[in-house]
Design a protein around this nucleic acid. Structure first.
Lengths: 172, 172
DNA sequence: ATTAATATGTCAATAAAACTGACATAACGG
DNA sequence: CCGTTATGTCAGTTTTATTGACATATTAAT
């Protein structure tokens, strides 16, 4: 009888504790994950937003401003300051679109790619180590859970992952 | 021969792609994870920092200011503003320490617990759904990978997880 | 051809959240 | 009693993002 009642209570407690732990893991991991890049960015007088812009432009060469805003979910004025700096300092290039000449298509320059690699180097090492230590199966679980946490918009960004290379990442 | 060379190249590409995907997953998940709570916080004229303070004080009842600063990694002036608001508005209580009367030991009031539950409700649902959909094995992988990404300081916070309840989370 | 809508950019004011530096008080430990 | 520690606070600044208003160029639709 006492046995049954503890069986009734414990699962709930463990579940709650499990969820709270997940929340904190996410908090600490995200912070530690970005900590090193933040230090490098300081040397350029850049912030995390600059890193994000460089990252997503590097990953989506020729992306237009609207789509980038859609990914970053900031206002165009906020993007403007950051993007303006990156363009002026030669990390990102803007080219007028060909089908639609209103668009400014963004690409990172070689200098920009260098910075991107520098910024993401530690992050790649962190993830690579964590992946290696945890094993392939854990990695699959990691991705599955994170994917499951995404809102529909963001999830859609990963749903074309199985398509051939060139067709990826043209989402709004 | 061509077969071998593609075998040599592809694994590297996939690995790089896998890492980049992990980085983006983390970015999107963290953002989506905090989005709803941010909306609630607005109604109180609070920010994400208030949420963090309430969360960690709730999880570590009787924590002192130094330890909280160690968790949050912000300056005491930044904490002061946030904590001051929370105390003045009755979400958090300060009690003078007994062994060391210089310390202000922090606990959340019932009102504070209510807000915490309200703020974390959506987050718990998000994680719970993701956990349920992904399955127990995936959850284990998720935790393994995230834990592996933590720096030594933050990892230590999770290393006493196997101790009996009352002894947890007394780290600096 | 004219016009409405779209893509982008920019000026200005403001707000939020952090920071640094300096200093003050109280309590602990020796 | 004295040096250190825990905490708090005042003041000034910086970073990053916001809102609102408006401008330009281009496309698309009638």
């Amino acid at each position: 009888m006492a046995d049954i009642s503890t069986r009734k209570v414990n699962p709930l407690f463990l579940r709650e504790e499990e969820l709270r732990q997940g929340m904190e893991l996410l908090f600490y991991a995200y912070r530690d994950f970005t900590a090193e890049a933040d230090l490098i960015l300081e040397q350029y007088n850049f912030g995390r937003a600059h890193h994000r812009v460089i990252h997503f432009v590097s990953r989506n060469p020729g992306i237009n401003v609207s789509d980038l805003l859609g990914i970053l979910q900031i206002t165009k004025q906020s993007l403007s300051r950051v993007l303006g700096q990156l363009v002026r300092e030669g990390f990102i290039e803007q080219k007028t679109g060909v089908q639609d000449r209103r668009q400014r298509l963004l690409t990172v320059t070689e200098k920009g790619e260098e910075l991107e690699r520098k910024l993401s180097e530690n992050q790649r090492v962190l993830i690579a180590n964590a992946y290696r230590e945890a094993g392939a199966e854990a990695v699959e679980g990691f991705r599955k859970v994170l994917l499951g946490m995404l809102g529909p918009n963001d999830r859609a960004r990963f749903e074309d992952e199985l398509l051939p290379n060139g067709l990826r990442r043209r989402m709004g």
